[in-house]
Structures are given as structure tokens and as C-alpha cells.
Amino acid sequence: MTQHAPSQLLIEPGVLAIFGAVPKTAAHQHTLIQITLPMDDADMCLTLPNHDAIQLNGASIINQDVSHQLTMQAGWVILIEPSCNVGKQLTAKLADKAFIEIEINKPLNSTLTLSELLGLCGLTPALQTTLPQTILDARIARLLDKLNRCIGKECVKPQQWRAADIAVELNLSESRFLHLFKDTMQIPWRPYLLWRRLICAVQTLQQGRTATEAAYIAGFSDSAHLSRTFKKQFGLSLREYQKR
């Protein structure tokens, strides 16, 4: 059996990429666009239960909110926010389809940078979470800037991210803030915040800290709560993720 490199983690605003093995996941869906890139010599099966149980065995892009199950011996899984520049390119490629298959003409490995990975997928790797300032509301831009400070650093406690409190800070009503955020980011605030908290948990685990510490830092009540949320979002329990 071919030996593959250990897991790798790359995080930029708007994008999370993980290299490694993926044990069989439960059916799950999330608000992100997903790129799956198996190694050339690695077995992979991606099933879409709600689309005639279609099975994909090669590189592919899955649209947001599409239920899927994945088993992969080794490769990259890249999760992308639909509102970032790369997400907009993917949305155009998908053209409202649930998924598309793509062709990668160069060999993959675990040492590729995020820009190189996205380039292999035919994307321009402009890794900004925010939209161009001419489009993005300045208040949402300030909020995203604060969230992005967590990447690679200690996470800001989630009690500071209550919608009502953020709305006051931005001089908006809570309902107006929630509408504006969803309209701008194409993801409602609460699921978006959950995604960001899970990024905090993943990067904490990558630093060698315990699941209990990751849960505390990311604002979950305990490691069991974090694991349940992780499985609902990604189809794997925290223990299964750590064993990869």
C-alpha cells in the first residue's frame, strides 16, 4: 500500500484546506462550496444521496447545501466561502449545478500551497474573504476584519459575537444586521459564525492541544458538544477527525 504524507492544514480568510485520509463520513451538508482532490493513487468515493446516489471517483466541486458522503484514502478537501473571490469563481463554474467533475493535469502532493491548489483547479487564487470594497458594505467589512484576526492566532471569545451586540456596534437593528449579512455573504450569520468557530477548533487541535481546550477556545460547552457539531457539519466525529 502506498504511504501518504501526514495530514496538513492550510487556512486563509474564506478558505480551509485539509490534506489527509477521510474515513467514511455520514451524509452531511454545509453552507460552503467543497473541492475534493484525491491523490492519483488513492481510492475515493463521493456519494450524493439526494441526487440518485451518484458516485464520483475523481476531482470534483460540490455546491453549498448539497448532501454528500465521502471516503478518501488520501487527498485534499478544500472548503470555500461562497462570497469570497474564489467562491465567486466556483459559483460561476457550477452554474447552479449540484456538482461538477474537474480535471487536474498535474500531480498532487501534501506540500502544495493554497495558491497552487486553487491554480490547479483553474481558479485565480485571490484569497480575500471580503468582496471588493465597492461592493461590500463597510460595516460588514469591519466585522470580517475582526473575525479574520483569529486566523493563526488565539480566537476571540464567541460571546462577543452575539447578533444583537454586533448590531448595536454597527448602528443597525438586529434584523437589519442579519439581513445585510446574509445578503452580503450568502450565508446567514449564525451558520457563518459556527463555521468560524469550527475553524478555531481545528487550528487549536492542529497546534497539539486537547479537544477539551479546543472546545473551550471555540466557545463550545465541552468536547462532546464540539464533536456533535463537528459531525453534523463535516460527517465525522472529532475522534474520527483526529485519527486521520
Rank of each mutant, 00 (worst) to 15 (best):
P107W: 03
N50A: 12
T111Q: 13
L79S: 06
L32C: 05
V86L: 07
G122E: 05
T129E: 09
L48N: 09
I80C: 10
P82W: 01
D96K: 13
A42P: 03
G58F: 02
C121P: 00
L46C: 12
L37F: 03
D40G: 02
D41L: 10
Q29N: 09
F99V: 09
Q55P: 04
H30G: 06
L79V: 01
N109S: 15
L136G: 04
I140F: 09
D40W: 12
Q128Y: 08
G87V: 02
G58M: 02
L90E: 01
A92Q: 14
H51I: 13
T36D: 03
G119K: 11
Q128D: 11
L9G: 02
R139N: 13
H30N: 15
A138I: 13
A17F: 03
Q73Y: 01
T31Q: 09
I33F: 14
I104L: 13
A59K: 01
I18C: 06
I62T: 11
Q89I: 08
K93S: 08
S110P: 01
V86A: 04
D40Q: 15
L37D: 00
T31P: 07
L118H: 14
V86D: 01
Q8T: 05
K24Y: 10
L32V: 02
K24A: 12
V66T: 12
D40E: 15
T111M: 04
P125A: 15
I11E: 07
A138P: 11
L48P: 04
A59Y: 01
H51W: 09
S7C: 09
Q55V: 10
T130C: 11
L70F: 06
I104K: 02
L131W: 04
E116D: 10
A92K: 15
N57W: 05
L127Y: 06
L37C: 02
T47R: 15
D65P: 00
P23E: 13
L9P: 01
L123F: 07
V66K: 05
H30D: 12
E12I: 00
G58T: 09
Q69T: 12
Q69A: 13
P132L: 07
N63A: 14
L144P: 00
L70P: 00
C45I: 14
I104Y: 03
V15H: 03
T124M: 10
S110E: 10
Q69N: 05
S7M: 13
M39Q: 14
L127V: 07
T31C: 08
L136H: 15
